[in-house]
Amino acid sequence: MKKNYILINLLFFIAFTLNAQEVYFPPNGEWQEKQASNYHLDFNEAVEFAKKNEYSESRDLRQAILKGFQSEPYHKLLGPTKRRGGPAGVILKNGYIVAKWGDIERVDMTFSVTKSFLSTTALIAKQEDLIDSFDDKVENYLWDGTFDGPHNSKITWEHLLQQNSDWSGELWDSFDWADRPPQDQNIDQWRSRELHEPGTYFKYNDVRVNVLAYSLLNVFREPLPKILKKNIMDPIGASTTWRWYGYENSWTTIDGLKMQSVSGGGHSGGGMFISTKDMARFGLLFMKWKNEQLLSSELIHQAVQSSSANPDYGYMWWLNKDASMKNLGQDVFYAAGFGGNFIVVDQKNNLVIVIRWLEPSKFEEFLNLVYKNT
């Protein structure tokens, strides 16, 4: 009798533990909240820290962008901008909101967080067999001259996704060499720089990111915001308020229809304009959305593997593989954007953390407070 009692209690404990770890996925227009203390967690210190450490530059993002990239030759705003709000954020545990601050409904620019949305459209293209393999050369899919030449013809989809393609050229009146150039060189040196073998050299470069967006537009033959909405944002219950912009000159004609090629960030304006809540839903996607295979587990896994040129970068997700952030596990990955915008995904602890307008240098300190008692 005693053995049966112990067995029943053991089974109940296992069932309770498994149930406690199940991820809740909020339906459209709803989101259940729980106290962090239900999970023996306390995020009050982290929340107060985020509120007190707002991004220090102007809330007029037009001014902040022009100041932030003033060292780049020919830099100018080509896409829309929007005055930002104050610090905001949300922390999810098992899908439930357990902490929030600021206006999480407000739509703001999110800058290079957009890159993780862009790489997700590439995963969709692979899942729908529009791209056979990310090891394929992009010139096999795009023959308009974008990948012509002995160097650019070697570039694969994976090179573009990992930002190690070293693609060379001009797109939308922007030159690859003019994006974040070395400050100890002059324009002539930038123009005549030595090209690196694709796959061997990591360089954060928005022009090359926009080349990926343009290439995917040609593969889908539909605007990428439409692809993202149909395949991801609508199924995860996102609002109708988000927008994804390109530039005033990033228009092309496909199948007789004029389409805008979107940008992978707000470096020159444009990019993803989105609320904190919708960013959190997108983060939950990488916990595996319900039992629906919106994105296969294999593709999600592939997207967050280290690249040979930079172990801390996957398919436009930042990683922690070298444990530079000591208090975080190596399986944590995140999207990061200008002005202190972040989506952090922790699959091991079922945490999604969205931060808006945190002073970027305070990011690790904020996360240390979040993980203080996890």
Results as ranks from 00 to 15, higher is better:
Y315C: 15
L118W: 03
K154R: 13
L118F: 08
Q185S: 14
P223M: 06
N249I: 07
S307I: 00
P150G: 05
Y24E: 13
M233F: 08
W289T: 04
L217F: 05
M233N: 04
D179H: 05
A20S: 12
S112C: 14
Q183S: 06
S261V: 10
L10Y: 13
A336D: 09
I227P: 10
V107C: 06
N291K: 08
K154G: 01
Q347A: 10
K34D: 05
F220Y: 14
F13H: 00
E105Q: 08
E33N: 02
E170N: 11
H301A: 13
L369F: 00
N44W: 02
G256S: 03
R191M: 05
T156G: 07
D206I: 06
M325Y: 07
L358P: 14
K100G: 01
N140Q: 08
N327C: 04
W318L: 12
A178N: 02
Y313D: 03
Q347C: 06
G266S: 14
N38L: 11
P26T: 09
S306W: 08
M272L: 15
V354Y: 02
S56K: 15
Q32I: 07
L216W: 11
E197M: 05
K229F: 03
P26L: 10
Q63W: 03
F69H: 12
G269Q: 03
S215R: 08
N218F: 01
D42C: 00
E292G: 01
L18N: 04
P73L: 14
S296G: 15
Q293V: 04
Q260E: 09
V304H: 08
K137Q: 14
V344C: 02
T146D: 12
T121Y: 03
R191G: 06
I104C: 05
T156F: 12
D176F: 11
K52P: 03
T146L: 13
Y141A: 09
E128R: 11
W101Q: 04
V209M: 12
K288T: 10
D184E: 14
D278T: 04
T146W: 06
H151C: 08
F273T: 09
Q260R: 09
G246I: 02
L285D: 07
D322E: 15
T81Y: 07
G256Q: 01
L171R: 05
E128N: 09
N152S: 12
L18M: 15
D234R: 04
T241W: 04
D179T: 04
R221M: 09
N19K: 06
A336F: 04
G79R: 00
A15N: 09
Y371C: 15
N349T: 09
G102N: 15
I353D: 03
L142A: 05
Y214C: 00
A15L: 15
E359V: 00
D278M: 09
V352P: 13
V47I: 13
Q260W: 14
V262F: 12
N140V: 01
L66F: 02
D331I: 01
E359P: 14
K277Y: 03
V352G: 02
E298F: 03
P80T: 04
